[in-house]
Amino acid sequence: MQIRMKLWVERDGEVIFGEGRQKLLEAVVKTGSLAGAARELSMSYRAAWGRLKASEKRLGFPLVERGSKGKRGLILTEAAHKIMKLYAELEQNTSGVLRKAEAAWPDNLDKEV
């Protein structure tokens, strides 16, 4: 048996960061562009752009900046790296709590209830 949970961070009821944004930024690092990241994640460029810009607006700082490779290349800002690290730590800590809860949950629930 497994216990599952989705995790994201909100401010004033609006998502500022979560697993989807984490994957999007990881894909930007891998591909060097937002278009490449969108393709990698099988999403439209418009959806990727919208999520990125929404997070930047809600956070109050940029997550990406133009790279030295030309107009289209993107790199993550230092702030983006920091928030990705914070989110990864949050996920790891939450996973530890879930594993403890799984261990305490009876495997034979139908006989325990």
Rank of each mutant, 00 (worst) to 15 (best):
Q2P: 06
G36M: 12
R51L: 09
R66H: 12
L90C: 12
D110G: 01
S68K: 15
W49K: 09
A54S: 06
I16A: 07
L86S: 09
L24I: 03
R46Q: 07
E102I: 03
E26G: 02
E112Y: 04
D107T: 00
Y87W: 07
L25A: 00
R99Q: 07
K6F: 06
E19F: 06
I3W: 01
E14K: 14
V29C: 09
V15I: 15
Y45M: 10
S68R: 15
G96T: 11
D107E: 14
I3E: 01
S68A: 14
L90W: 05
R11F: 04
E56C: 00
G18F: 00
L59N: 05
E78F: 12
L24P: 03
G67I: 12
E19S: 06
G13K: 12
L24V: 02
I16Y: 08
N93E: 11
L74I: 05
G18L: 05
K69G: 15
R51W: 06
A47P: 01
E56K: 02
G20A: 13
T94D: 02
V97M: 13
K111C: 03
M43G: 13
R39F: 11
A79I: 01
A101W: 01
A88W: 03
G32D: 14
L86N: 07
Y45G: 08
A37T: 10
R58Q: 05
V9Q: 10
A27L: 03
K71M: 14
K23P: 03
G50D: 12
L52D: 07
V15L: 15
E102P: 04
G13I: 10
R72K: 13
T31C: 11
A79F: 05
R46L: 08
K69Q: 15
S95M: 08
E112T: 00
L34K: 02
K69I: 09
L74K: 09
L7C: 10
L41C: 12
K30E: 15
G18T: 06
I75A: 10
A38E: 06
S55R: 07
R46Y: 04
G13V: 13
S33I: 06
P62C: 05
L7D: 09
L86G: 04
V64C: 05
A80M: 07
R58N: 10
G50L: 11
W8Q: 11
